[in-house]
Structures are given as C-alpha cells and as structure tokens.
Design a protein around this nucleic acid. Sequence first.
DNA 1: CGCTTGTTGTGAACCGGTGTCAATAACCAC
DNA 2: GTGGTTATTGACACCGGTTCACAACAAGCG
Lengths: 153, 153
Amino acid sequence: MTRPARTPAVPVDGVDEVAALLRGGGGRVSAVRQRLLDVLFAAAGPASAERLAGEVRRGGFPVDVTSVYRNLEHLEQLGVVRHMHLGHGPGLYALTRSGEQEYLVCESCGSVLGVEPERLDAVREQIRAEFGFAADFTHFPISGTCAACAADA
Amino acid sequence: MTRPARTPAVPVDGVDEVAALLRGGGGRVSAVRQRLLDVLFAAAGPASAERLAGEVRRGGFPVDVTSVYRNLEHLEQLGVVRHMHLGHGPGLYALTRSGEQEYLVCESCGSVLGVEPERLDAVREQIRAEFGFAADFTHFPISGTCAACAADA
DNA sequence: CGCTTGTTGTGAACCGGTGTCAATAACCAC
DNA sequence: GTGGTTATTGACACCGGTTCACAACAAGCG
C-alpha cells in the first residue's frame, strides 16, 4: 500500500520560473500550461481542477478538464503544486509558492483555515510523543468545529 | 454549508438490542438488516459498504450495495453505526459499539490506528488554545507517517 | 524546415455513491 | 390466521470526480 513519495515543495515566484523547471525536465511550455499557471498564480486559495479549468476558459481559452488534471499532476511532481482533500468534494490544488501550508476545516460550515506549519509544531510534537506518529496536515486537514460554529451551536 | 448534526453514539452489545431500537423508531427488522448487523458485529474494523455487502453475500444471502448503503445510513442515524473517511478510497463503516473512536492513518502504508478519544484530549486542547478550534478525529483521521514507515524511510 | 516526442482533445470507462420506482415482505390489528 | 399498511428491497439509471486510450497536434530541437 505504499504511495509514491511526496516531492519536496519547490516554491516559485512566477510563471517563467516554472517554465524553466519544465523545460529543464524535458517538458514543454504549452499554451494550456501557461494559462493554467497564470490562473494558479492569480488564485486566492486552493481550487478544484474543474474550477481552474473554468478560470482558464473564462480567459477565452477552451481547455479540457482532463488536460488540467494531467497538468496539475505534472506540476505536483515538480513540487510546484500540491493537492489536498479538505473534507468531502473534489480535491483542491494550490501552488507551493511560499512553502507548505497546513489546514483546519470546519465540518459544520466548511470554512478553511490555512496556517504555517510552525503553528502546529506543538501539536505534532504532542502526537509524536503519544503515538510515535508524524502528523501532517498538508494533504488531509485537521477536521472539527470552528469557533464561530461552536459559539452558535 | 451546515451539515446535519451528528447523532450521538449509541453503543450496543448485540443484534437484538439494535432490533429493539429499530422497532422502537417505527423501523423493521428485515433479513438484510439482520445479516448486515451480524457482519458488522463480526467485523475486525471499519469496512466499506462494498466489503460489507460482500460479506453478507458470502454468507449465502444475495444483497444489493444500494440496500447496504441505505441500511448503514439508517443505522448511523440511530447512532449505532458511524462512518469515517480514512484517506482516499471509499468511506468506512463501523459500529459505535464501545463509544467513539478516533483514528490515525499512515499515508505511506495505509495502516490505521484507532484510539480512545481521551488519548487525544491534550492534542485537542492544544489546538483549541492556538486556534479556538474543536478538533475531532472520528470522521476524518489524523494523517501522517507511522513510526514503522518513518523508520525505514 | 522538418522531425521527434511531449501534450492535447475526445470519448469512453471507472469508482463511490444517490435517486427512482415498482415489487416485496415486516409488522400490526383484527 | 388473514388482510392491510407501509418500510424495505432490488434493479437500474444517473451523478460527480477522476483516469485511461488513442489519434491529432504542436513545442522545441537539429
């Protein structure tokens, strides 16, 4: 049941930087790829493949979701993109632009809180001490109830 | 985006106890239901609907997955069954027999560690203090790398 | 400019899960 | 028992999210 090892995050600052990475790995910088990267760089937060495809199309460039999935996978292998599963629904993709992010998701209202890994180090340490387990909330988030929902419950 | 509130866990000791609950709520104790409960009580751990259906069939009783899904949902509403999402793949179902359980899942080998909630209270407290967030690992587990996988990495 | 080969769209297939609907069978009253 | 009410069932279609297969296309190299 071993999964392919996770590529280390490769934070990038712009499309051209990714282009260099792509070409360096024998890849090409296709039009679709460029548009998708534009959208990723412009995105406010993690987004589904479908949504990203929609954004690219809204830019006047027809693209198939299949292609978006393939590209996201490719970019993920390069370490430029990461995907996560925030509750039910489709997987979400985001640039690793400024390093990893970890997530807390409210099961009641669906709100997503993205935090820097350091803020979870104490938690991680606690879990390691108790179970010898290295917790990681970048791919699957911490699930529960946010303060707001707890308040009006 | 509010989800239906979670029914409190109703630990049960045997099929007849569930039968009573079912009848008490205007439900019936059908053959499928009984077989499914038998399988659930015999199960080693959380199992997918497909798997449970398979078990029932292996007992010589043909059953449709659709029916299994419906029954699991019904039993979950009674608080007798709970489902969880341990990583990718189908949802898994288990009796709440002895109260809630929380889970840690290794992303590398897929191993599942079920623990009593008390063992995670310190972690929960830590998360509450830092984020005002009430973490819960019964529906979505803590994800990461188990000791064994960390060792031979 | 042309060749190689990475990339694309199309369309089908897959998986997990839900909805519909007529047929069946628990349970209750008598 | 018998009959009627209605929960439950199987069958089958369908849905969202994702992957596969393959022929057509185009990026980048010589």
